[in-house]
Design a protein around this nucleic acid. Structure first.
Lengths: 238, 238
DNA sequence: ACCTGAACACCGTTCAAGT
DNA sequence: ACCTGAACACCGTTCAAGT
């Protein structure tokens, strides 16, 4: 059943159409889009035999590269010509908003072994913002490493709080929280501190956007201080 | 061929032995240990039918959880009772050295949907260091989010520089570098800046340990400043 | 020359049959 | 009761056969 989906997709296959359908399929699978995605499922979605895809992409890896480039290409270029710090901040926040619309993308980008053209173009642009703002090539280089995947909007959290949290029953949650508090008292204390201004219970009750901006500003403020101090990689870091 | 490996592995199966063999198999597969690892390959390595594993682990997910706990359990507990900043620094650097010995581990940890017991115990210990150092529960909470996966030694780089870089021939590398410099001039400039004190060409020529410590110190210094300033999440961040 | 069905070499896991 | 072989429902990709 459901062999033929949308009739509009009966147009002749092309690399464009394959890539668009691939992104749409991954988007539709939500947070587990990276795992749920397969060549065979994509072919089925396009109403096509699996082998037909190989006329337009060399293999799955190349298709994933193409999907990454589509997503990274969505990131808005900076409009304001503000100081480097707000420009980079705004750039990274819009990268984050793109990643939030394609929840599979971070995992797929991480699986690539090297940068794709769109990623290189994006990094080139961010580097340009730092350099035009007066940062030395030396400092900019280390700063790009320090920001790392956060440049593309990665939260870099240890576990995905915004994901498919099972949301257990209040009774179960209470018992689990009590067990957790006994075994990991420091974790429990921190979780309680987080729950102060949030309504949710232990765990998923954090404001992802606040945590992202907190970490980003911590880094940008630090970078600004190094820049004003005339830091170089040969000078003592403290 | 090579049906029976090491004779010592003929001992009766146990959860312990399964987990140890799983870690050893992933280690042996190098950087691609996460992808190369499979239940069937592990069973073969143990000289056992695949189904035999399911007597000791519920499924592959639970086995991966167990592998993560083994690796995280290897992280050395802090010995010195120094100030919180050097204690956390030392703790994170030893987490990093463990991750460098198990190149598959970061990818597997990221694939887990929630923290395992050993990870919780580790986080509990780091939180304790911050709290004993005088940081508020509020600040500690946000700081733990900001450090994120770096707490476990993740480099958080966009692409793995230490991995299987193809190391192209000098001629190819030169041509590629010229093309890259034309398309992405800012990237090329930064790469050249990095190559100053390094012998390698564009790309993999960065000192991973330096970049890791640079980013870590950027964060720890920023945290220290917020702490001394009496920062709270309700106060203005700038 | 182009397209595609069957096939190959995998995978995690279920389940019934054998001991 | 325990163990395990065959089987199921996948996967990416090769390749030869059909048009």
């Amino acid at each position: 059943m459901a062999e033929e989906r949308r009739g509009a997709e009966r147009a002749p296959l092309s690399r464009e159409r394959v890539l668009h359908a691939a992104v749409a399929l991954a988007d539709a699978s939500g947070a587990s889009g990276a795992e749920a995605f397969s060549m065979r499922r994509l072919a089925q979605e396009l109403g096509v035999v699996p082998m037909a895809l190989y006329k337009h992409v060399a293999n799955k890896e190349e298709l994933l590269d193409g999907m990454v480039d589509m997503v990274v290409g969505e990131i808005a270029r900076p409009t304001t010509s503000a100081d480097w710090k707000s420009a980079v901040r705004q750039q990274i926040l819009s990268a984050r908003s793109v990643l939030l619309h394609h929840r599979w993308a971070a995992r797929v980008i991480e699986s690539r072994t090297g940068p794709t053209p769109a990623v290189l173009a994006y990094l080139d642009s961010v580097i340009g913002t730092f350099r035009d703002g007066g940062l030395s090539a030396d400092l900019t280089h280390h700063v790009m490493h320090a920001l790392g995947s956060r440049l593309l909007g990665f939260s870099q959290e240890l576990f995905d709080t915004g994901g498919a949290a099972p949301t257990p029953s209040p009774a179960t949650a209470g018992a689990a929280a009590a067990d957790l508090a006994r075994a990991y008292p420091r974790v429990a204390e921190i979780a309680a501190a987080a729950a102060h201004d949030m309504d949710s219970a232990v765990g998923g009750g954090c404001d992802d956007q606040f945590e992202f901006e907190f970490a980003l500003d911590l880094l940008l403020d630090g970078i600004e201080r190094l820049h004003h101090r005339g830091w170089t990689s040969t000078s003592p870091s403290t």
